[in-house]
Design a binder for these strands. Sequence first.
DNA 1: AATGAATGAGGCTTCATTCAT
DNA 2: TATGAATGAAGCCTCATTCAT
Lengths: 190, 190, 190, 190
Amino acid sequence: MTGQTKGPVAGRRADAVRNRARVLAAAEEVFDRLGGTASTAEIARVAGVGIGTVFRHFPTKQDLLAAIVKERLDRLWVEAEDLVAGDDPEAFFVFFRRLVRQSAGKKSIVDALAQEGVGLRADKPIGTLQRLIEPLLTRAKAAGLVRADAELPEVMGVLTGTCQAALGAGWDEDLQARVLDIVFTGLRPR
Amino acid sequence: MTGQTKGPVAGRRADAVRNRARVLAAAEEVFDRLGGTASTAEIARVAGVGIGTVFRHFPTKQDLLAAIVKERLDRLWVEAEDLVAGDDPEAFFVFFRRLVRQSAGKKSIVDALAQEGVGLRADKPIGTLQRLIEPLLTRAKAAGLVRADAELPEVMGVLTGTCQAALGAGWDEDLQARVLDIVFTGLRPR
Amino acid sequence: MTGQTKGPVAGRRADAVRNRARVLAAAEEVFDRLGGTASTAEIARVAGVGIGTVFRHFPTKQDLLAAIVKERLDRLWVEAEDLVAGDDPEAFFVFFRRLVRQSAGKKSIVDALAQEGVGLRADKPIGTLQRLIEPLLTRAKAAGLVRADAELPEVMGVLTGTCQAALGAGWDEDLQARVLDIVFTGLRPR
Amino acid sequence: MTGQTKGPVAGRRADAVRNRARVLAAAEEVFDRLGGTASTAEIARVAGVGIGTVFRHFPTKQDLLAAIVKERLDRLWVEAEDLVAGDDPEAFFVFFRRLVRQSAGKKSIVDALAQEGVGLRADKPIGTLQRLIEPLLTRAKAAGLVRADAELPEVMGVLTGTCQAALGAGWDEDLQARVLDIVFTGLRPR
DNA sequence: AATGAATGAGGCTTCATTCAT
DNA sequence: TATGAATGAAGCCTCATTCAT
């Protein structure tokens, strides 16, 4: 039935990996579009696989949601690494702005930030994000770009809030800039 | 109908009024706790009425959600009126802080702010809120307490963001204060 | 509250009687329009009474349906009596035609004929109708206007069938006449 | 899809096909017995499948009803084709009689005739039936077996009426024959 | 006797999850 | 391993009927 050569070890495994990726991508798209109540069937349809395949890779809808969040955090991590590796003290603001921009229209990234709904006890996304942001914040403070008394918790609070609002309202570029101007002003030293 | 005072109303009507209130209260509690996907049955249980009673008063789940939002906005409106009536230029910050405080742990008030989920074609909650806040903001700007270039849209953005974050994270008093300090600093003139 | 004079014995009773009639009339109208699945509430609304009143007079929806049927049969009976009392041998056809005409658009009269749905074990509407039609048929046969071998059961069959079809299809005058022409031809002696 | 014979189909598909048929059969039985208001659950029970299966195959109760009607019309169509293909001028009467016989005790075939209840915007059952009967009628008239002035509409009227009556009353063979004798006499030339 | 609010069983439908192929 | 049919719990809503006023 599969007909192909059984050649290089991979064989079936390759399909599985590809399918997993497809499902993840589809889920991201669908959840971003319809929110976490979107049906698993819709995801399977978008992914172009059977619904059984979805559940083979992610035994539970929760698992799927969690996987998306993890995936996004991983991606953010990668994006953040360059910034962390570099020594630009403005990196904190760059990353902040980037998060907000990505949030517009993407429910799942916001969920990642807010751990809302999803029972993500396992991965502590907030914690992960914090670990990403902490060094950037520290450096920005050291450079005198962020007020000295701003601690991580309230910075995270402002960040998640801004991202959530950006999501819900579908801000345009201009409004994003204006909101960030307020927030960044609040973060900088007087 | 009777044209009299709207007081306790006569006959059975009293029970109906009481039940309507009970359902509304239960719905508020349940939706705040479980989000908008909570079941109607759960609400009926909490309200201590039959499920039919819930639907008699609110023919649709949407209607119930909308009623809660409206109720909350009405309450906010009342609260805001005093502030508007007075002449304290700090009233803007007072109201802002109050909203954030109330949002902690209350999903539906945040929904009211974000108009998310609820199909509130009728009342445009954001619009309503804006009308509440606009005069306060104007006055604060006139008094030099808010930077002159802060327009309503970005102020609303910061406000809803902060409320949403407060909701999701269940901030304690202290964290709330620290976040607000950042935000308010960003809003004040340099 | 009632305020009126307690005068002539009737008093409350009169209201009750009037209400019963109203409900019956409303039910007839509603069931004819919407069929037997129409809601009791709709009937109360049309009758202009509380739903409790409907159930006071007719403890069950079935009872209401049955009462309508009975009412209609009673009316038919009255209509038939003149015909029976007279000696026109064509009376059979007159009555037949009248039934069909009344059936168009009136679900309940047809139900009366077909005893369908309603659990009318009590009154045997068919039986009642048969008792109405039997003498007319007999006379028509005696006068040589109906074939001698046509017995009551098949005559009733043709009658109910024609009425049911008239109901469902909403025949106009012309079509009614054409169908009846076929049926009557079948009934007359060759 | 496979392009092959429509035979037993491969894989699970076979079960699905069988289940679809079972559901259809059950629905036919149940609706014939209890009318169109019978519950979907009852159908699932009779079919011996889960209720979800019913809805997988027929997303709506309406769809199920419609499918039954369509199925019946298809079957009638097949039955009629032979008659149409042949040249027996009595075929009209044969088909008429067959319809009436099948109607006894089968609510859904009658619904098909009367298009009642079922929202069959798509197929216009009456229209379909008419197309079946028209050629038979024409031929019978040409052969002088049906009076020349009998047009299709009134013939359909008599037909549906007789079928409906047969349904409601549960006629036995003998009564059917006697009714049909009257109707057929009415249809034949004097 | 009239009213209409309350009740809850029951109907239709969705959807996460399981399982046979 | 992939598939998609099957399952049934659960959700929303309707409506006949009861009951307090």
